[in-house]
């Protein structure tokens, strides 16, 4: 095709410029900032090498390890919960039940609710004195909980509120499931296998690329949780929900220590890259690609 390069660059110029201005540039700037003690309210900024990083890892900043621990706990709890629950719901939706479209709408609808509104609804549902959940629990003579207000239950409670929004993960699973050819299942029927062998030997291997995709996206998203921390818990009680990005925001924008906050951001980036890489590496053991060994 004629004049390809010129027109190709012309059409993609806004995107390429946008990448340079809003991603690459800030990335480099952030890396440089992370090596300084830049603070909006200080007159002088000096280059301090890796001091910010050693401040984190030496334990001088206790909140760094604290927020890291909180976030890991959240990720470890949330990622399996999201994947298993949404896979289960997708399996149910994939059966040819009547009213499938209505169920699908109901499951998806919560994921479009603005985070602030969703937080508000959950604060009220989980209200220890008058909220719906505790009313139901006490009506059933089950122990109630302080949910977001107790150190032990705050993270599981936040996980619970985010499970309301798993709709798009369910839909992606559903797309993966509907791509499986019926013939495979018929083969198992002929062999006399039941639903378990279908799930184990056909469904799971065939949707493993989708499981892989959803797992990576959920990990990346869970590490960056912010709105819930800001609105629901403000990091409390007693820093038990001091999510990493919330701590970063507080350091950079409330305490205006932007140099240190940039270092925090880079550590987060490396952690996310590490986990993504790790899942990629293990994927060849459990992700099945039709038509051969693409990894």
């Amino acid at each position: 095709m004629r004049k390809g390069l010129f027109y190709g660059l012309l059409f993609t110029a806004p995107a390429i410029l946008g990448f340079i201005i809003f991603t690459l540039g800030p990335m480099i700037a952030s890396l440089v900032l992370s090596l300084t003690d830049y603070n909006v309210f200080k007159d002088q900024t000096s280059f301090i090498g890796f001091d910010n990083y050693s401040r984190m890892f030496s334990g001088e900043d206790e909140l760094f390890y604290k927020s890291l621990g909180v976030t890991f706990y959240f990720v470890v709890l949330r990622v399996p919960a999201v994947i298993i629950l949404s896979f289960f719901i997708a399996l149910l939706l994939n059966m040819n039940v009547k009213g499938r479209a209505i169920f699908r709408t109901i499951i998806y609808l919560p994921s479009i609710v603005p985070a602030v509104a969703s937080a508000m609804i959950w604060m009220w549902l989980l209200n220890p004195d008058l909220g719906l959940l505790n009313s139901v629990l006490s009506w059933l003579h089950l122990p109630t909980s302080n949910w977001l207000y107790a150190e032990g239950s705050v993270i599981p409670s936040v996980v619970l509120t985010t499970l309301w929004g798993i709709g798009s993960t369910v839909i992606i699973f559903l797309a993966g499931l509907s791509g499986i050819s019926k013939q495979y299942y018929e083969a198992i029927d002929v062999d006399g296998g039941g639903w378990y062998s279908k799930l184990r030997h056909i469904t799971i291997p065939m949707v493993s690329p989708t499981i892989f995709f959803n797992t990576i996206m959920t990990i990346i998203g869970s590490f960056q949780v912010f709105n819930e921390a800001y609105i629901l818990t403000e990091g409390g009680p007693n820093n038990k929900s001091l999510f990493y990005v919330f701590y970063l925001w507080r350091t950079g924008f409330r305490d205006t220590e932007m140099g240190y906050a940039s270092a925090l951001a880079w550590v987060l980036f490396l952690i996310i890259m590490f986990f993504t890489y790790f899942v990629f590496k293990t994927s060849k053991f459990w992700v099945h690609y039709e038509g051969g060994g693409r990894t």
Binding site: G4, Y7, F19, S30, M258, F269, M273
Partner: peptide, 27 residues
């Protein structure tokens, strides 16, 4: 449009999807 380096450029742009917003937000 076919042009040299197209898919490489696209792949580079795609990496920004993995980048946490936290990294770029301060600068």
């Amino acid at each position: 449009i076919e042009w040299r380096g197209r898919d490489t450029v696209f792949a580079i742009l795609m990496t920004s999807m993995m980048l946490p917003a936290a990294v770029t937000i301060i600068p």
